[in-house]
Design a protein around this nucleic acid. Structure first.
Lengths: 199, 199
DNA sequence: GAAAAGTGTCCAATAATTGGACACTCTAAT
DNA sequence: ATTAGAGTGTCCAATTATTGGACACTTTTC
């Protein structure tokens, strides 16, 4: 049993039922929707890990356009879930377009249960990798900004910032901080007093 | 005419010829190969931007395995080119697998020339985006390493590093550096002498 | 080729840093 | 409960560093 939340969206009640039967033995939470209209509110209220999304919700349109547009919607959310698309009327162009729009995988009906679960888990893993990458990039931007400001700082400003950081590292232990900074304890006191850094 | 180098690999001479005819009006350099065996040496000797790769080079095997394995080879090179796969025997599974292995796009024979060129250019753009991301990540790793070492530096070490950086910013102009650092010129001299930083 | 800016060095006044000392307050182990 | 060990806050006098100003000289810039 994996600790992930999955949402399954398909307009065919029978398909939905059988998918739920399979998936609820694998995922801790399985939400089924007969159409994607309530997807926005679902995404707002719950932190879904992966969505298994049918491409057609309308007997009149079998071109998959609806699936693609919902895929786009999902992927432009902040921290979007993984998306695996599923369709009976798939062609190569549709599959390629889906993956280029950010879907993690694409499966055709009829599906193989084991393979489907495997793909869903792989999709979740892929999403987690992307999340890690995102946080690395965020961190990188912060560091870069910090570096940019450092270069136009005064010597004292840089000194004080470093003092504060080391002090923080030492959990406010002045004696240890002084040793780490290789200055005397009095000097550290003087600095803190002079710059109003009271602890 | 775009300043990109493209390599086209297809075992069908007629296809190769007609592709070359189309592409040499768009790309500054078009290399055609009748099979992928000389691809490694080509990649070593030239900086190829995009590869248009057929999936089958053997009348006996039409499952695309060969194309996939060459795709994998290409994508594990350092700074790999963009890859667009082309096939007449494509199925959805093959297309999905290709994109998941890192191909930028997938087209089916028979192809539309305008669409093919469009996809190749989009693939190149995608690769350039990836290159930018890579360099951002490299830079991020450097900054992070720097930050990690900073936290265990002595106050004087941090000071001196900052002095050197500002000095560098000022192109070695001591007077300007002293102003930026907000210390007197003599103090800057003393530091440089004391720490053997001669310029 | 003159003006402006930068360099290298000196000086004495001022300010910061230093090690050592002392009384004190925690805190963790006995 | 007692106590040793570590940390704090403050003092001091000796040492060091920083400062602004000054000067002759070189380099840049217009």
């Amino acid at each position: 049993m994996y600790p992930y939340k999955i949402a399954v969206i398909d307009d065919n009640q029978a398909v939905l039922k059988s998918l739920k039967l399979v998936l609820k033995r694998v995922f801790v939470s399985v939400v089924t929707l007969p159409n994607p209209n309530s997807l926005p509110s679902l995404l707002e209220s719950e932190e879904i890990d992966v969505i298994l999304l049918d491409m057609n919700f309308n007997a009149q349109r079998l071109d998959g356009e609806e699936g693609i547009s919902w895929l786009k919607y999902i992927k432009q959310q902040p921290n979007p879930p993984a998306v695996v698309l599923i369709t009976a009327f798939g062609d190569i162009g549709l599959a390629v377009q889906s993956l280029k729009e950010g879907a993690e995988d694409f499966v055709s009906k009829p599906w193989d249960n084991d393979e489907l679960v495997e793909k869903l888990l792989a999709a979740i893993e892929k999403r987690e990798t992307r999340q890690r990458l995102d946080s690395t990039l965020r961190e990188a931007r912060q560091l870069k900004a910090r570096w940019e400001t450092t270069r136009q700082m005064t010597l004292y400003e840089v000194e004080n910032r470093h003092i504060l950081e080391v002090l923080n590292e030492c959990g406010g232990n002045l004696a240890e901080a002084a040793v780490r900074l290789n200055i005397s304890r009095q000097t550290l006191y003087n600095r803190l007093k002079k710059y109003g850094i009271m602890i």
